[in-house]
Amino acid sequence: MSRAFSQLISILTPILLAPLLLGWVNQMRAWLSNRRGPGVLQPYRMLHKLFNKDSVMADTASSLFRFAPYAVFGSMLLANAIIPTLSTDLPLASAADAIALVGLFALARIFISLAAMDIGTAFGTLGARREMLVGFLAEPALLTVLFSASLIGQSTALPTIVEAVAHKHFAIYPSLVFAGMAFILVFLAENARVPVDNPATHLELTMIHEAMILEYSGRHLALMEWAASLKLFAYSTLGIALFLPWGIGQKATPSSLLLALPSLALKLALIGIVLALVETFSAKLRIFRVPEFLATAFLLGVIGMLTHILLGA
């Protein structure tokens, strides 16, 4: 019973909190650039509005285009369900380990790219091509980060990794320094954040994510936006699980949840602030600097694995 409950909590938390995290980041960005900002609840209002609107679909769209938002949303939801956010006692986590998690992100990426190509406008294909460009480097980079962590836990199962880092005797892992750096770079690239993409503009020269979902509207757009915020949430909690796992409970007892929830909220708020700071202070990269940026992340991940093997720690 406890297991099912813990699983349910770990599915509901991301669904409910993901837009809030996005709103928080946007609000922080606004404050940092001396604007008042729309308030942290804006994404919820946005979703509500979009769901109630009629959906306008291009007359060239095929059934794949209509199916894609659901597939993307579903994959992101499952991704959140297998990352230990509040407790490591997750029945679904045995179905998909770290490698399958990367596979899930890739599945969502491929569907969103295919949907973008489906309409057959220049924007869609441009976005799809750039997204795949980001993806083919970000994906292996994320894998190397996860492998650095799984070498420590001797396991690719996420709960085991978290328990190895958080609940065994305290130790410092130098390889995680590299993995952490690589993860930050991947995090920025995968969530269409500033040095790679800017979620706030629709400029042809630079946009990636927005170019792909340009043709979506109404409930489909709402699902896509929600999925994007779920992705941000998933990456944040993954970062927490790998690098700041203290506070994640082992069993989903009410007491451990009481302890885990505030610590999770605190860490997420912190990540939001850091993310907004990074975005405010860095300039958008030219699109052809992006492969370099991601290749750096990839190689840092490799060096992380190397240091683990070399230092034997």
């Binding site: 410092i172 390889s175 720690a313």
Partner: peptide
């Protein structure tokens, strides 16, 4: 020892 290892990793980074 772990700290020295950590700083070594930092240096490499």
């Amino acid at each position: 020892i772990q700290l020295v290892n950590l700083f070594a990793a930092f240096l490499l980074l």
